[in-house]
Design a protein around this nucleic acid. Sequence first.
DNA 1: CTGAAAGCGCTTACAG
DNA 2: CTGAAAGCGCTTACAG
Lengths: 342, 342
Amino acid sequence: MVGIEEVAEHAGVSTATVSRALRGKAHVSPKARAKVEAAAKELGYVASSSAATLATGRTQNIGVVLPYIDRWFFSVILEGIESTLIEHGYDLTLYNMSGGQSQRDRIFNEFLLRKRVDGVIAVAVNPNEAELENLTRMKKPIIGIGGPIKGARSLSMDDRAAGVLATEHLLTLGHTRIGMIGGEPGADREFNQPDLRFIGYQQAMNAAGLEVKPSWSASSDYTIQGAYKVAKQMLGDPKDAPTAIFCASDEMGFGTIMAAKDLGLEVPKDISVIGIDDHDMSDFFALTTISQHPREQGKKAVEMMLQLLNDAKLQEHVNVEETTEWPAPLVVRGSTAKHVGR
Amino acid sequence: MVGIEEVAEHAGVSTATVSRALRGKAHVSPKARAKVEAAAKELGYVASSSAATLATGRTQNIGVVLPYIDRWFFSVILEGIESTLIEHGYDLTLYNMSGGQSQRDRIFNEFLLRKRVDGVIAVAVNPNEAELENLTRMKKPIIGIGGPIKGARSLSMDDRAAGVLATEHLLTLGHTRIGMIGGEPGADREFNQPDLRFIGYQQAMNAAGLEVKPSWSASSDYTIQGAYKVAKQMLGDPKDAPTAIFCASDEMGFGTIMAAKDLGLEVPKDISVIGIDDHDMSDFFALTTISQHPREQGKKAVEMMLQLLNDAKLQEHVNVEETTEWPAPLVVRGSTAKHVGR
DNA sequence: CTGAAAGCGCTTACAG
DNA sequence: CTGAAAGCGCTTACAG
């Protein structure tokens, strides 16, 4: 394993010059630079990141924490984060919170603090006061995606507004009996996201002077199969099934469409369905939705982070509250249509 | 940011004792250990991983490379790897190969070599000779999942045998007109997996003395929507549509089932469908499949890796060819049934 | 059981 | 532009 010393000898210069040349720093003669580069290449030299980290205090590595990896929204965000980081020469260390409270504690109080990362991007994970304080003490900025973080920077769509927008789209089409399938209470308690989307739905219904029947609200686990089950229940009601359903995610929208089909209902003739996300398969299902562009959201968070890390005065404001709103526009496809009385 | 020195002072011992006590090493008196632990806790001390790495040569970090993150199979393997690593105090650095050849080169020749990882787990990524040589030179073991790696350890199911098994299941049910939807040629050329599954299918058909009509073979991109399209084509053939279809992945199986439904065909009465994977949604679709247990596969790969890293004589056999077969049993659900002539 | 000290492999102010 | 040397914060053989 060849070190910087060996390269220096080979090139006939000091290790200081090798370091400067290889890192593209100024104050190196073209000749020295060429010699160093040739020697490094010939010897197959790659600088040890731990030695560099120890000397500079910078790891060139970002920690990413998320609650799930195997769900579309999270995996796509992760992909956006990863590809942007690698473009900039950064590594990504992954922490999945699925292991419960004790794992979470270890991640926040041990893994994230052992000076292995320069900063943290938290997706749908809301650090509490103590967790945030630890990070700030270690001078680690954190950027959240998916909801506002108290005392730190974050990037997220306006969930309440999205609920209003989806509902108003259905209202404008003449629907009055509108149901909603939200997330399971507690499943996302980090930010009570489903609540905000549900609140938006209620607000829009109230503003239109419409009743929200209890039987028109259901919750599920954000999966296709979970939503299928509750949608079938809702649509099968002989007395007052809704004529339109707003789902808090596209995957739940797919389940709802499949449930409708299996009941012999036609979408959108008999029942309109709208989701949130703009999933890879939404076009295939012709699902009207509110677009989240998770890949771009991940990319944006990385750009915010890198800018922060390049700020010489970062120390003075490691973590400050600052929420950046992510636009979430309506995408109309074939699953919603004018209500026609049956 | 408190260092080991400060803890030593606070506890009234040397830094050597602090290090030994905190790492649970022997030869520390209970009294000293207690003092150190108290001091560390009080000061909120967490050892710097880069300093520890520089001193020991061990990073406690594993690099994971994969071609996609946002596909079920890969995201679940990743989850299995992550949760097992964290249990053992290891970090996971993620590399996604989706960025094309130049990104791949950077990952293999730069990122993976800068002494940031102790080893590499490669999922459906097959390093070439030069890439493997680099890793071996840096004493980094690599373990592959998803196919045999020439010159290194790997863990994978027998894809050819799975093709035979799936086809024989359909043959036993009396089907003779059996189609197959495989992966797109080139999409997985790392291991030509789809080829092996297709070869198994052909072998089983030949062994049964049955013809494999060209129109019964199609390929797709492993997605639901991709398979939907080609399945509709295959099933819509007025002259000789197959009575059963073997799909190289469960997601393609879902697409095939949806295509059949939309054509008014009943599964399994009119058409049998079998997949490979045992996807989270396979139960929901009642899809018969060959189970891969990706989560457990990821876990197993980590266990193999950690055992390797604890082997004092690892240096002598950093990378040697050794393929471990992963069992892939048949799981019969409701999408396959006895063929009844129409 | 415990401590002084060397060493891991870089980077960078400082002096030239 | 270039080099000698200190320093980053740990771990561990060595000696006691």
